[in-house]
Design a protein around this nucleic acid. Sequence first.
RNA 1: GUCUCCUUCGUCUAGUGGUUAGGACACCGGGUUUUCAUCCCGGCAACGGGGGUUCAAUUCCCCCAGGAGAUACCA
Length: 487
Amino acid sequence: MSVRVRYAPSPTGLQHIGGVRTALFNYFFAKSQGGEFILRIEDTDRERYSDESLQDLYDTFKWLGIEWDEGPDKGGEYGPYVQSERFGLYTKYAEQLISEGKAYKCYCSSERLDALRAEQQKDKKSQQGYDRHCRDLTDEQRAEFEAQGVKPVIRFKIPLDGKTVFHDVLLGDVKRKNTDISPDPILIKSDGFPTYHLANIIDDHYMKITHIMRAQEWLPSGPLHILLYQAFEWEPPIYCHLPMVMGKDGQKLSKRHGSTSLKDFISGGYLPEAIINYISLIGWAYDDSREFFEKADLEKLFELEKLNKAPGVFDYKKLDWFNGQYIRKLTDDALKEKIIPYLADTGNLETPPTSAQDKMLDGMIPIIKERLKLLSDVVPMTAFLFSDISGYDVADLIPKKQDEAGTKKILEIGRPIIAQLNEQSDEELEEKFKALSEESGFKLGDLLSPLRVAVTGSRVSPPLFASIRLLGLEAALERIDAAIARF
RNA sequence: GUCUCCUUCGUCUAGUGGUUAGGACACCGGGUUUUCAUCCCGGCAACGGGGGUUCAAUUCCCCCAGGAGAUACCA
């Protein structure tokens, strides 16, 4: 039987690291098995639903380069792939369970439930959750509630004894006493929409999903889902609960740990290759040494057997390192295309760039490529090319162990060499500065540092001569003169 | 509170009944270099604790501790 897996996000927020990791693992598993990867939109929470979230989902996966074989935008044999369009199906099966005595209508108000929960928490009662108040209502009682116009929810009858076992590929047999399963969970909400529990079972069955890979936070509802499959007399899929992704403090990764939405990473200057590579390595490892994997590699190499059980901490620094590595692997042209938007955003570049700007971009790439960790780093790194830099502190001009007089002298004797820049190669210029160093007694670094600050406004910059070539000699000399004038 | 899952360097991990417990990031040194970065070399650093089983346990079993997750008319 061919593998069919799904990613089933709820469009109630931006796509985040955890969700994308789940999607990626499902996708890679499907591809490695020659199976199908399906996208299903679980939009049964009408309160939190938003169109932006849905758009963000599409944008994110397009950026990542991940395509599904079946989905709302793609079609497929088992559609519709949006739960709100499958409404009738859920109601039908809920009714069926009621008629079979496996589910019941509950008329409890939210207020009563809230009060119940508050009391249970306060008293630290061992029994938590719904008290099954409506499980055995008489026909008369039900009729009375109906007459009052109370909109009921439909709850599933969890057996009062016995236990439920299911097998997890990663975790082995997971056993649970039925009394420890959430007491009679809601299947259909009072607005008529199903909860996740009901909808995912029915859809996975109808869409012929063979494997469920989802985060371990779903583990506790595993037995409930098995019970539902049993109630419908359907064959459950194979389960695999993925280890969770945590923040540095060991808690479930969330916004307070830093950026978690892919949108942030995209605008922050990360490459999809780096994101895919790094994320795939949380909870999964190929062997003891290989760590570079591109999408196409993972599509072949991914294996369930190499999954880890323990949760993993998301390491922003290692992601940054991967990103730098992938930036360096880019061709100059590819890098150029990727940095243009960042420069254009600051207004430093027109869109499309003028031919002069285009030339400048070409010259810029070789000197910044090995210095970028994030694409967005290009902005501060090249700011001296586009804007006034005179705001630096005079003290920055002065090298360590030098004084004002010495610094002024350095600028004065360095200037004539810089002035020849258009006729000289970088190597020749360097030789001249080395010779100057010999005869003046100033160390080479001390000679160049004030010039660097004068031209770029910073002690840290791309190589000086190349930077001046990009800026233009005339402007550079003006900046040097301005620096001299500050003493 | 209850239930469940998890436990190798700071982090991601490899690994085996007998290994100097391997790699990567980070960090710290050193080298290359006009600063920075890149690159190269080196260093630091781990089997949570206690019982067993065994000639031998990081590895197998049990207990404990710690961490996490779930306990919603959210997924």
